[in-house]
Nucleic acid binder design. Structure first.
Lengths: 355, 355
DNA sequence: CTGAAAGCGCTTACAG
DNA sequence: CTGAAAGCGCTTACAG
C-alpha cells in the first residue's frame, strides 16, 4: 500500500482546486451538485481522509475532546466515557483520556501539559476534578472550553450537566417510607463532594414531609467507599434500636451494608432494607440485587460533548457578540427497584406514596 | 492571556535559530550546554510548549496511542486504560480511546476512520477485538503498529502481552484440591474466547495431576456473564451429587454462583467453595469475598505502551535492516485467596499441594 | 555545534 | 460557484 492520498491527489484527479475538495469534504455549502458528486467519487476511490494534524494546524481546531477523571475504578467514569466516545464519533471528534490524581502536587502542570500539547477543542471534567480550583484555573488560563459533569455548584463560567440528586434521594426515601419504614438510617458520602450533601438533603426533606423526626443516631458519616459502608453498617446495626432500612449514599457503601448485614446474620430485605445510589454493575450482581438510582451517565456525557462541539473557544466571540448564556442541564434519573427493599417488619406497609 | 508562544518567539528571544530551540526541546544531543540553558530559560519564561499538530504534520509522529475496546463495563478494560494513560504520560504520549462493537457491520470503516484521521503511532487492542480479523486487517492496511493484550494466539505479526491462563487455572484448581475437594465443577467461559479454553485446560491438568477423574457432569458451559453463572450454578447444584467446589472461569460468573448458592440456602464456603478469575472490584465487595486470580492489567498495559513507543512504524525499516523479532510477553499473575474457599465438607483437608 | 530552506497537508481570507 | 495564495508551527535533510 502506497502513501495515503492527500487533498492534492484528489484535486488533481478530480480536476478541481484543493479548495473545492476541502469544501466537499467539510460539507460546506456553495458547491455545484455535479462538482460535488465528482469530487466525492474521487474521494471514495482514493479512500481520501483528511489528516487531523494538518486540519488542526491550519484551522485551529483539533477535533479532540479531553476527558479528565480521577477514580479509574468508578463505574461512573466508565459510563461517562462510553457516552462520550460514542457522541464524539458521531460528531467527528476523538476522545483523549487522562487519569489524574486529585491531590497530585503538580496537577496544574499535568493539565497544562496536556492542554498545550493537544489543544483540545473542549474538556469534560468529572467529580471531584470538576470542583478542583487548580484544575479549573489551569483550564481557564488556556482558554479551553470545559463542561463539568455533576459539579459541586453551578459555575457561572462553565456549563454543566448533572442529575437532580436532591429529588432522587427524596424519591428513594419516599419509597422506604411507603414500605412502612420509620427508622431509616442514612450513610452519608464523602464530605468534600456536594452530591453527599444533596442526597442527605433529599433524605431529610422526605422524612420531614412525612412527619418523621430526623434521628441523629441514624445519620452516619461514610466516604463513598466500600469499607466505609461496612464500618457504618456495624455502627448502625449495633444500636440498641436498629434501623429497619438503610439508605446508603452510593452503591459501594450499600454493598458494604449488605455484607455487614449478612455477617451479622440479618436477612435482607426481611430484617433490613437497603438502598444504594448509582446503579453500578455490581448492584445487580449480588443477592439480593440492590434497589438504587440510575444516574444517566451516558446521556450526561453525550450532552457534555454536544455543549463543547457547539461552543466556540472561550473569548473568541469577545468582539461584541454577546455569548450564549452558560447552560446548566439537569437530566432525568431513574429509580431502580430491586429486591433489597421490602415492607418494614415493624409496621404494616402503608399505601405507597411518592415513589 | 495572549496567544501561546511559538518556536519562533522562543528563537527570537533567545537569539538562536528555531532549529536550535527544536533541538533543546526534544533533548537532542549536540547543543552547547550554555546555549541549551539559555534557550531552556526562555522556554520556561514564555511557557512554550510545542504544538502537537505541528510536530505531527512535520515529523510524521502523532504522539497519540489508540486504545480499542469493546466492553466498557469490563473491569479489565478499566485496568488496562489506567496503566496505559499513566505510561503514555511518562513517555510524552496521549491516549485516545474508542469503544467499538465487536460485531458492528462497519467495524473496518470505524477503525479506518480513526486511524486515517489521527494516524496514531500505535494501537492497543483488548479482547475480543484483538482477535477480530477485520480489525486486524484494517490496522495492517494502515500500517499502524499494534500490541495485542491477551490475544487468542500469539500472532506472528503483532507483539502481544498476556498472562498465563493455563497456569493460573491450574493453581486455583490445585488450591481447591489441597483443601480436600474432589468434586470440583467448572463453569467455562465464552466459547469464542481462548482464555476460556486455556482456563479449562489448566483445570483439567490439575485434576489429572492429582488423579481425579474429569467428570463431564461437572463441566458446564457459561459465557462470562453474570446470568450465565447463575444459570450454570442452578444446573450444577441441582445434581443428585452436588459439587463441593465451583471454579467459575471469571468473577462475573462466580458472583452468579454465589447468588445462586445463597438463594438455594447453601453456605459459602461451608457447603460450597467458589473461585473466580480476574479480581474485579466486585469480587472483594461481596460476602464472602471471592478467592480469585488477579490479572496484571495495568502492567500489561504499560508493557504494551512500551512496545509501541519503541517500535518503528511498520515497514519503515523495510530498507534491509532486519526488524526486531516480534515480542510476546507473559506477565505474572497473582492468586488472591479470600473467604469463598474452605476445606471440603466431604473429606478432611489433605496436606496442601501445588497452590 | 548551529542554521537557512523546504515542506508536511490542510484551512483561512480574499478575489473573481 | 470556484480558485490562487498565504500561512498554521513545527521537523527533516542539508550545509557549514
Amino acid at each position: 500500500m502506497p502513501k495515503p492520498a492527500t487533498i492534492i491527489d484528489v484535486a488533481r484527479e478530480a480536476g478541481v482546486s484543493i479548495k473545492t475538495v476541502s469544501r466537499v469534504v467539510n460539507r460546506e455549502a456553495g458547491v455545484h451538485a455535479e462538482t460535488r458528486d465528482q469530487v466525492q467519487k474521487v474521494v471514495d476511490r482514493l479512500n481520501y481522509r483528511p489528516k487531523q494534524s494538518a486540519r488542526s494546524l491550519a484551522g485551529g481546531r483539533s477535533f479532540l475532546i479531553g476527558l479528565l477523571y480521577y477514580d479509574p475504578s468508578a463505574a461512573f467514569v466508565g459510563g461517562v466515557q462510553q457516552g462520550a466516545t460514542l457522541r464524539c464519533r458521531e460528531a467527528g471528534y476523538h476522545l483523549v483520556v487522562e487519569s489524574l490524581h486529585n491531590d497530585a502536587p503538580d496537577l496544574p502542570v499535568q493539565v497544562d501539559r496536556m492542554v498545550s500539547a493537544l489543544r483540545p477543542d473542549g474538556m469534560i471534567l468529572t467529580p471531584p476534578l470538576c470542583d478542583n480550583p487548580q484544575v479549573l484555573k489551569a483550564l481557564r488560563d488556556s482558554r479551553t472550553p470545559c463542561v463539568l459533569i455533576s459539579p459541586a455548584a453551578d459555575d457561572p463560567e462553565h456549563p454543566s450537566v448533572r442529575m437532580d440528586d436532591v429529588h432522587a434521594a427524596e424519591e428513594i426515601t419516599n419509597l422506604l417510607i411507603s414500605l412502612g419504614h420509620q427508622r431509616i438510617a442514612i450513610i452519608k458520602g464523602a464530605k468534600e463532594q456536594v452530591a453527599s450533601r444533596r442526597r442527605y438533603q433529599g433524605y431529610a426533606a422526605a422524612l420531614k414531609a412525612h412527619g418523621i423526626a430526623l434521628d441523629k443516631d441514624l445519620v452516619v458519616q461514610g466516604d463513598f467507599t466500600f469499607p466505609s459502608g461496612v464500618e457504618a453498617a456495624y455502627q448502625l446495626l449495633s444500636r440498641r434500636q436498629r434501623p429497619t432500612a438503610v439508605f446508603a449514599s452510593n452503591d459501594e457503601m450499600a454493598l458494604g451494608v449488605l455484607v455487614a448485614a449478612q455477617r451479622l446474620g440479618l436477612e435482607v430485605p426481611g430484617d433490613l432494607s437497603i438502598t444504594g445510589f448509582d446503579d453500578t454493575p455490581a448492584a445487580a450482581r449480588v443477592w439480593p440485587p440492590l434497589t438504587t438510582v440510575r444516574q444517566p451517565m451516558d446521556e450526561m456525557a453525550r450532552a457534555a460533548v454536544d455543549l463543547l462541539v457547539a461552543t466556540p473557544r472561550m473569548g473568541e466571540n469577545a468582539s461584541g457578540i454577546p455569548a450564549k448564556p452558560v447552560q446548566h442541564r439537569v437530566l432525568k434519573h431513574e429509580l431502580i427497584v430491586r429486591d433489597s427493599t421490602a415492607a418494614s417488619v415493624d409496621k404494616p406497609a402503608r399505601t405507597r406514596k411518592g415513589a
